[in-house]
Simulated scan of single mutants.
Amino acid sequence: MPVPRDERVPRAEPAEDAPVGVVPRKPGWQPRRPVVVSAGSAARFAERVRMRRRIRRDRVLAWSAGGAVAATLAWLLLVSPVLALDPAHVTVRVRGDRAVVDVAAVTAVLTHQAGTPLPRLDTVGLRRQVLDVPGVRAASVARAWPHGLVATVVARDPVAAVPAAKGYTLLDADGVQVGRSADPPSGLPVVSVPLGDPAAMQAVLLVLQSLPSDLAGQVTGASAKNQDAVSLTLSDGSRVEWGSADRSALKAAVVETLRGSPASKGVKVYDVSAPTLPITRS
């Protein structure tokens, strides 16, 4: 609906004193002034830019230097001959009967790694190889910086000799063959058990292992018809009917007591298969 002419808003007329061609300003309007950057602000901005660039450059240099150092250390430890194994610095130490262990074979296992840097050596794998050498019961292998290895070997000490086709086979307490001898070895009992009866042999070895040193030194032979009928021969010709390997500590104490009493004179047989009821026979 058109607005009546009389109600229309009157047009603003220019002021009488306004210059010709100048548009009057709206009430409250202010002209926009240009942003003025001072010389001090520009300098601070430039300094911040230079600082950021310097920080990035320093980081790149630090990373590059760290990588170079790591690469140098890796080459020095894992590749270079600076820490390489020298066969002249390989040492083998034997605990027990040295004659039982083939020291040359143990040394060969270690020197086979000559020229390998020590940090790269697998000492656990070398230990397993040393344990495979005949006569070795236990072993440890350690690095000896900067060029050596030290192997400490525990020998399998023989506790008995078993007659064989040519001479005697020497066995340790576990029944493992640790050597051979053409003649009956001095200080070791000669064991006789039925062929194909490992239980009887194991019983004899358990009894021999449990003997106190004084009594063990008097044993010259041992036999077993089965695992429950072990018999020991002593140096004075008497015999000990031991029975099974059970309660061996008590049986050994009973034998030593009986042999130490005056009544033991002329006794040829000590039966301690029932150690609480021992029997002696002349």
Rank of each mutant, 00 (worst) to 15 (best):
E13I: 11
P14I: 06
P14A: 12
A15S: 08
A15Y: 06
D17P: 06
V20S: 09
G21A: 07
G21W: 05
R25E: 14
K26D: 13
P27R: 15
Q30C: 14
Q30P: 05
R33A: 13
P34E: 01
P34D: 01
V35H: 11
V36S: 11
V37E: 10
V37A: 12
S38P: 05
A39T: 08
A42T: 13
A43I: 10
R44A: 14
E47P: 04
R48E: 10
R48W: 08
V49F: 09
R50V: 09
R50K: 11
R52T: 10
R52S: 14
R54W: 15
I55F: 10
D58W: 15
V60S: 09
V60C: 09
S64F: 11
S64D: 03
A65H: 02
A65V: 07
G66Q: 06
G66E: 05
G66D: 06
A68G: 01
A68C: 04
V69C: 08
A71R: 03
A71S: 07
L73R: 01
L76S: 04
L76R: 03
L76N: 04
L77Y: 00
L77H: 01
V79C: 04
P81S: 04
A84D: 00
P87I: 03
P87E: 02
P87A: 03
V90T: 03
T91C: 05
V92G: 01
R98W: 00
R98A: 09
R98F: 00
R98Q: 06
V100F: 03
V100N: 01
V100D: 00
V100M: 04
V101D: 00
V101I: 04
D102K: 05
